[in-house]
């Protein structure tokens, strides 16, 4: 075999291996997607059908005015995710700026947020449930926003520290000589140059909040239910509405799946921020 043939063979084998890996990894998402378009008798047929007449009935049921208001759950998820990542950004940009340029007790805060990321969530969930119960804040979006913001801050802080470290100190110094105070430097100098970074941090925060289950689950039961939590409502004590559930899961997966297709680079950067850095 020549060197070139060997190389071609290697590439072919690699592609085959990669295809097998992808089929295994995405089998679940794909099969669930197909199930969402199946009529009830197609779902219960054995052996399972891979070719069938697709129907939109499940999506109509889920999005229509059925027993649960899944449209409201999707809206809740959206509102909570947007506001939580927004607040997290507002909290962490000045903190990151302080840690990079001012030092002081910033390291303690950085350490605590990172510890927070690793701590068992249930250690917070039980007291938080009781505290919000006391404050009559159960089943409100604001209670969920408080907690989601908290869990977005560690990654957000880490990312902004990285972005600010990469900025040349001279821009701020020039602004400072021109008489700008710290607040002005922050809003008029720093935030404009950080915009791309803010974009990817916001996407990551959105996904964190959208996918969160424990706090959304215990803090809501009717009005503030999120889409991720709401999918489980299709399992009742009488029956499991498989088709509707598959449609609900598909709808709840679309926003986050979309991001991995359109913003993969910034997502990867954020998700590996904890482990991969200088």
């Amino acid at each position: 075999m020549t060197r070139k043939q060997k190389k071609t063979l290697g590439t072919v084998l690699t592609v085959i291996a990669v295809v097998i890996i992808i089929v295994i990894l995405d089998m679940g998402v794909l099969t669930n997607f197909l199930t969402a378009f199946k009529a009830p008798f197609d779902i219960s047929s054995s052996p399972p059908k891979w070719i069938f007449k697709p129907t939109l009935d499940n999506f109509r049921n889920v999005l229509g005015k059925g027993s649960f208001d899944f449209r409201l759950y999707l809206w809740n998820s959206f509102v909570i995710a947007v506001i939580s990542s927004f607040i997290a950004i507002i909290l962490t940009i000045p903190a990151a700026y302080s840690i990079v340029r001012f030092h002081g007790f910033g390291d303690v805060i950085l350490g605590s947020t990172m510890l927070l990321r690793l701590a068992p969530a249930l250690a917070f969930a039980i007291p938080v449930f009781l505290i919000f119960n006391n404050m009559k804040l159960l089943d409100t979006r604001i209670a969920i926003i408080f907690m989601h913001t908290l869990f977005i801050t560690p990654t957000s802080l880490l990312l902004f520290i990285g972005y600010i470290q990469d900025l040349p100190k001279e821009i701020e110094e020039a602004a400072s000589i021109d008489g700008a105070n710290t607040f002005q430097i922050l809003t008029q100098v720093l935030i404009p140059v950080l915009l791309p970074g803010i974009g990817s941090t916001a996407i990551l925060g959105f996904i964190t909040s959208w996918n969160e289950y424990l706090f959304s689950g215990i803090l809501s039961f009717k009005k503030a239910v999120t889409a991720t939590v709401g999918t489980s409502f299709f399992i009742t004590s009488y029956a499991v509405e498989w088709g509707n559930m598959a449609a609900a899961i598909t709808l709840s997966t679309i926003p986050t799946a979309l991001f991995i297709f359109i913003a993969q680079k910034s997502l990867v950067k954020g998700m590996t921020a904890g482990a991969v850095k200088g």
Partner: peptide
């Protein structure tokens, strides 16, 4: 390959409960 990573673990679980 990265796609399953952005699916919420709870949704992944619900999905597999069905599948």
């Amino acid at each position: 390959i990265l796609l399953p990573m952005v699916v919420a673990p709870f949704l992944m679980g619900t999905m597999f409960r069905l599948l």
